[in-house]
Amino acid sequence: MSVISLTDCSHAVSLPDGSSLGLLANVSVALEKGQSVSVRGRSGSGKTTLLSILGLLLTPDAGQVHVAGASLDGATDAQRTRARRATIGFVFQSASLVPNLTAYENVELPLLQGGDHSRARRRQAVAAAMDRAQITHRRTSFPRQLSGGEQQRVALARALVRSPAVIIADEPTASLDVATADRVLALLLERCREDGTSIVIATHDPQVAQHAHRRLTLDDGQLHDE
């Protein structure tokens, strides 16, 4: 059973002149447990839209989304929120850390958004996630005190802290130097191998894409295997 699957999903956005621009046209894709998938495409091709639908942040205009075999057709915002909380972690292009919180508190953030997590369990989960992202030594630092690579590792720990089934990463290495990008990518793929976490990475970089089990290209609203 797929962790997340899209079936014949289409989505368009409205332009300022009143016309609409189709970004996805009858796209179908299934993400299996422990599978890493890269999505490439030129700017504006709809990669982020595809990831947003996979991440349950956006409802497609048409088509079906299934999470662990359950359809989300007609699901309320609260149901989609619960499904997202239980299943998905995000790594954004920029780390998007909360500036007023320390690295530890940023990693803890997803555990505070619902669910039954005691303080001790939270502490344990945060410590484990920070350890896996190799950022424990900066736990008391605020984002402004961290380098770009460190911020992205904190963001990675935040995505991992709930041990999600899927990590959606939108160009996670785009703003990093090559060495740091390799390190972040290695950490992501390690989770995929060791924990069976499924990963979807949107990227422009063929070097990043080549590490994925499955490489997809988005062109004219259609997904193709490379």
Binding site: D77, T81, F92, V98, L109, P110, Q113, G114, G115, R158
Partner: peptide, 8 residues
Amino acid sequence: VRRAFGAS
């Protein structure tokens, strides 16, 4: 970010 990580 909070909403993305599951805050209702």
